[in-house]
């Protein structure tokens, strides 16, 4: 059986960033896509690799690791990247994704 995109994302980020904390949520169900889709993900990633790195550089590093997935079916990737220190300061809390506004349906009809 082929692996899900969620599993692949987990594995690739785990290998590359050796995270202290990693959560990959498939949020596709809250978007305007067919049931069972793997198009919208939210990732919370805590790694000491991010020490001294600006947010842009952190996101670029993640985008690079997941380039294949982003070029394929993954359409949205909400990223919350922290160092272990920042994660402690936030008491282990990352922002939620905003609600979908149905862009896909209007887009295809427009």
């Amino acid at each position: 059986m082929s692996r899900s995109t969620e599993e692949i994302i987990n594995e690739k980020l785990g290998e590359r960033f050796e995270p202290q904390h990693l959560a990959v949520d498939n949020e596709s169900g809250s978007h305007n896509v067919p049931p069972g889709s793997e198009t919208h993900f939210r990732v919370v990633l805590v790694s000491d690799r991010f020490d001294g790195q600006r947010l842009l550089a952190r996101h670029q590093a993640v985008n690079e690791v997941l380039a294949e997935e982003l070029a394929g079916g993954v359409h949205a990737l909400a990223l919350h990247t922290y160092t272990p220190g920042e994660w402690r300061d936030r008491f282990g809390d990352a922002p939620m994704s905003p609600p979908c506004l149905g862009g896909k349906a209007r887009e295809s009809s427009g």
């Binding site: 947010l55 842009l56 996101h59 670029q60 985008n63 380039a67 982003l70 070029a71 359409h75 949205a76 990737l77 909400a78 990223l79 919350h80 922002p95 905003p98």
Partner: peptide, 25 residues
């Protein structure tokens, strides 16, 4: 831009980032 998703914010010609970065900033 070497940035796979939208939105993308540019300030003074430079990519700042997408929604998560803008919100955090």
């Amino acid at each position: 831009a070497n940035w796979p998703t939208f939105p993308q914010l540019y300030v003074n010609g430079e990519l700042i980032g997408g929604c998560d970065i803008v919100t955090e900033m």
